[in-house]
Computed example of a mutant assay.
Amino acid sequence: MALTNGSSLQSIYRKFKPQLLMVLVQIGYTFLYFIAEASFNHGMNPHVYITYRHIVGGVLMLPFAYFLERKVRPKLTVALMLEIFVLSLLGVGLTLNMYFASLRYTSPTFVASMVNTIASLTFVIAVVLRLEVLDIRHPRGMAKVLGTLISLAGAMTMTLYKGSLVRNLWQPLIRIDQGSAATHENWLKGSLLTVASCITWSIWYIMQAFTLKRYPAQLSLTAWMSFIGGAQSAVFTVIIEHKRAAWTIGFNIDFWSTIYGGIVVSGLIVFIQLWCTEERGPVFVTVFNPLSTILVAILGYFVLGEKLYMGSILGAIIVILGLYMLLWGKDGDQQAVHSNSQEQTYLTSKEQKENNKLILPSALKEGSQCEP
């Protein structure tokens, strides 16, 4: 009985492994939000943080990539290296620097609402490039469309609609210093940077699917993107930041946020996302993004004592509903692939049997002619 329960749990884990991993990814991003916010309020330059974070991530992943993928890692060509350079630019050097730069000119609420559109943008691009199977005549195809739209509506509700304030039940367990840095508002410039970062982020997810077909070594690709992206970010930071003091960090929250961001986010999370992209596609990975918004709101309310509005609760419910619908539609894709695989295996086996039937009488006939 225990053996049966163990095997059933194993089969459930194998079936829902990508979903579980992506939930863990969003939990990792949630903690990153708070520790990075504390570091920025302490005075750390966001662009320096991006550079150091990815260097740490590259150093972490390098030994694993070198030893574990020696036999499966394809040979690097000039064309493939150029492709990884562009992939690193889209995922790190360009996107993240534009994202953090946009925070200086707009508000975190606006940026959060725009970032939650990445899943919808990725879905549209994937459908256009035929990376995503979409048949709106089928219930599961319609579920993917409606799930994406509902999830987007829920994320926008969380960030743009407040509603009544939910009263705090107790004093905050942790307080984060908000700092004294003033925000220089320039909504036009900030909006353009935010929109551009969301578009490049979506293209980055899509491009991963193509690169992984030519370079199916997730650990090595993670290490390459960290090192190249960190170098690109360093060049960008040197251009806009002329103070040497900005590159100096002490053994404080700046150091720990860099270590956490490098090991957990630039290392482990990027590797998990690459694996899930290869298994389920880029749309599957991005559709989980609004979960971090929900987790940030919950953790901020219960632990940090931040304000929580009914709009956030309503938006969270809508996001979960949309996410469930889209994952149900995506599960139909996996079932279709499995059915096609079984059908192909059956047809191949049937063809082999037919060939054997044809070969066997001929062989017997030839054998009978050879007899004295």
Score class of each variant (00 low, 15 high):
58 G>C: 11
58 G>K: 12
58 G>F: 08
59 V>A: 15
59 V>R: 07
60 L>V: 15
61 M>L: 14
64 F>H: 04
65 A>P: 03
65 A>W: 06
67 F>P: 04
68 L>N: 08
69 E>G: 00
70 R>N: 04
70 R>E: 02
71 K>S: 14
72 V>L: 01
72 V>K: 13
72 V>D: 07
74 P>M: 08
74 P>L: 06
75 K>M: 07
77 T>E: 13
78 V>S: 14
79 A>G: 10
83 E>N: 06
84 I>G: 00
85 F>S: 09
85 F>Q: 03
86 V>P: 06
86 V>N: 10
86 V>W: 14
90 L>N: 11
90 L>Q: 10
90 L>C: 13
91 G>W: 04
92 V>S: 13
94 L>W: 14
96 L>D: 14
97 N>S: 10
97 N>T: 12
97 N>F: 09
98 M>A: 14
98 M>V: 05
98 M>R: 06
99 Y>L: 14
99 Y>G: 01
100 F>S: 08
100 F>D: 06
100 F>T: 10
100 F>N: 10
101 A>C: 00
102 S>M: 11
102 S>Y: 07
103 L>F: 14
104 R>K: 14
104 R>S: 09
105 Y>M: 10
105 Y>C: 02
106 T>Q: 11
106 T>H: 12
106 T>A: 10
107 S>I: 06
110 F>K: 08
110 F>E: 05
111 V>T: 15
111 V>M: 12
112 A>P: 01
114 M>G: 03
114 M>R: 00
116 N>K: 08
118 I>N: 04
118 I>Y: 01
119 A>H: 07
119 A>M: 04
120 S>Y: 00
120 S>V: 09
121 L>A: 03
122 T>M: 01
122 T>E: 02
123 F>Y: 08
123 F>A: 05
123 F>S: 01
124 V>A: 09
124 V>Q: 04
125 I>R: 00
125 I>C: 00
126 A>R: 02
127 V>F: 02
127 V>A: 14
128 V>L: 13
129 L>T: 07
129 L>F: 10
130 R>S: 06
130 R>W: 02
134 L>V: 15
135 D>E: 13
135 D>F: 07
135 D>Q: 12
135 D>K: 14
136 I>W: 11
136 I>L: 15
137 R>A: 01
137 R>T: 05
139 P>I: 13
141 G>M: 05
142 M>T: 08
143 A>G: 02
144 K>W: 01
145 V>C: 03
146 L>N: 00
146 L>D: 00
147 G>E: 05
148 T>D: 03
150 I>A: 09
151 S>G: 15
151 S>V: 08
153 A>Y: 09
153 A>H: 05
153 A>T: 15
154 G>W: 11
154 G>H: 12
155 A>L: 11
156 M>F: 09
156 M>Y: 03
157 T>G: 05
157 T>L: 12
157 T>A: 06
158 M>P: 09
158 M>N: 09
159 T>N: 15
160 L>T: 13
162 K>E: 05
162 K>D: 04
164 S>R: 12
167 R>A: 14
167 R>C: 04
